[in-house]
Computed example of a mutant assay.
Amino acid sequence: MTDSAASSPVRSLFLPDEAATERLGASLAAALAPRDLVALSGELGAGKTCLARAVIASLMGGPEEVPSPTFTLVQTYETPKGPLWHFDLYRLSAPDEVWELGFEEALSEGMSLIEWPERLGRLLPPMRLDLTLRFADRPGARHADFVGHGSWAARIDRLAA
């Protein structure tokens, strides 16, 4: 395995409330660069969209109307760092359908946040940040687990600090 394909060990962060999730989103936004992909996993209601909204608001420089792309499957935002593509693949019937959503353009030009990345199967790019949100043992709290692949392996410590 080459260094560029290496992945880091799992790092975890406790998020005691929604404000902590929003702070994580701001940290993630600061770390994002063009052609980055963040695969957001977790059960329904685990906070994936909340985290994505915080990333987008931070990139846009303040509060922004961020609809969930559950029905449209993708929303795009022009940010000072470049285009950000927010995919919600929950309703995807087959992995190949992602090409109709502009996935190739998102990978080559923009930054991508992908909810339900497991729906991509073999199409999920190997260079990415895997971020899984899990419910914690108290209301509103979550655990965030990170695994960085490729360049994210070296950058993951900024997020899980």
Rank of each mutant, 00 (worst) to 15 (best):
P126W: 13
V74S: 00
R158S: 13
L32W: 10
G25S: 01
R155K: 06
A54F: 14
P69N: 01
L133R: 07
K48T: 01
I114E: 05
L32S: 11
L124D: 05
F14M: 12
S8F: 04
L124V: 08
T70S: 11
I56M: 10
P139Q: 06
R158F: 14
A30K: 12
L101K: 03
D3I: 15
K48I: 02
A160T: 09
A6K: 13
G47Y: 10
M127V: 14
A154H: 12
V55W: 02
E104R: 03
L89T: 11
Y90I: 02
G102K: 09
A26E: 07
G148F: 11
A52G: 11
V55C: 01
D88P: 04
D137R: 07
E118Q: 07
P83S: 04
R158G: 15
A30G: 08
L89D: 00
T70H: 06
V147I: 15
V38T: 08
P139N: 04
L73C: 10
W99L: 08
V10F: 11
S12W: 08
L123K: 03
P126H: 12
G150R: 00
G110A: 08
G102T: 04
S112P: 04
E115L: 02
D3C: 12
A39N: 05
L24M: 08
W85E: 08
A141P: 12
R35V: 10
S4T: 15
E64W: 14
W152L: 05
G25D: 07
E78A: 15
P16K: 02
L59G: 03
L28F: 07
V10I: 15
S58M: 03
I56N: 02
L73A: 05
G150H: 07
G102S: 01
L15N: 09
A20T: 13
E97F: 10
M60K: 09
S58H: 06
G62T: 08
W116R: 10
R128L: 03
L133V: 02
P9L: 06
L124M: 09
K81C: 01
T79L: 05
A144N: 14
K81H: 05
A33P: 02
A161V: 15
V10W: 12
L28H: 06
A26C: 11
M1Q: 09
A52T: 07
A57V: 12
A19I: 12
M1T: 13
S8Q: 03
P126G: 14
S93I: 02
A33R: 09
R119M: 12
L113F: 06
L84N: 00
L59E: 03
W116T: 12
P80V: 08
E78I: 13
M127N: 14
D88M: 08
S41G: 13
V98G: 01
V55E: 00
A26N: 07
D88I: 08
L73G: 06
I156L: 13
L84F: 06
G82P: 10
A31N: 06
R53M: 02
R53L: 08
I156D: 10
S7H: 15
